[in-house]
Computed example of a mutant assay.
Amino acid sequence: MMKKKMIGKTFAVAAVITGLSAFGLSAQDMRPVLNSASAKKITEGCEAYALDHDLKVNIAVLDQGTNMMAFLRMDGAPIGSIDIAEWKANSSAASGRPTKARFEAAKNFPAIGHAPNIAVFEGGEPIFTLDGVLLGGVGVSGAASADDAACARAGIEAAGLTFKR
Score class of each variant (00 low, 15 high):
Met1Ser: 14
Met1Thr: 13
Lys4Arg: 13
Met6Pro: 03
Val13Leu: 15
Thr18Leu: 15
Leu20Gly: 08
Gly24Val: 08
Gly24Lys: 05
Leu25Ile: 15
Met30Glu: 12
Met30Thr: 12
Val33Pro: 00
Asn35Ala: 07
Ala37Gly: 09
Ser38His: 13
Ala39Glu: 05
Lys40Cys: 07
Lys40Arg: 13
Lys41Gly: 05
Thr43Lys: 01
Thr43Gln: 02
Glu44Ile: 02
Gly45Cys: 04
Glu47Trp: 01
Tyr49Thr: 12
Ala50Lys: 05
Leu51Thr: 14
His53Lys: 12
Ile59Asn: 00
Val61Tyr: 00
Met68Gly: 05
Leu72Ser: 07
Asp75Thr: 09
Ala77Ile: 09
Pro78Lys: 05
Asp83Tyr: 03
Ala85Thr: 04
Ala85Leu: 02
Ala89Asp: 07
Ser92Gly: 06
Gly96His: 05
Pro98Asn: 15
Thr99Cys: 02
Lys100Leu: 14
Glu104Cys: 09
Ala105Arg: 03
Lys107His: 10
Lys107Asp: 09
Phe109Ile: 14
Pro110Phe: 00
Ala111Gly: 02
Asn117Ser: 13
Ala119Met: 11
Phe121Leu: 12
Gly123Val: 00
Pro126Arg: 05
Pro126Thr: 05
Pro126Asp: 03
Thr129Ala: 01
Asp131Gly: 09
Gly136Ser: 10
Val140His: 00
Ala146Pro: 10
Asp148Val: 04
Ala159Ser: 05
Leu161Thr: 02
Thr162His: 04
Phe163Lys: 09
Phe163Cys: 11
Arg165Glu: 12
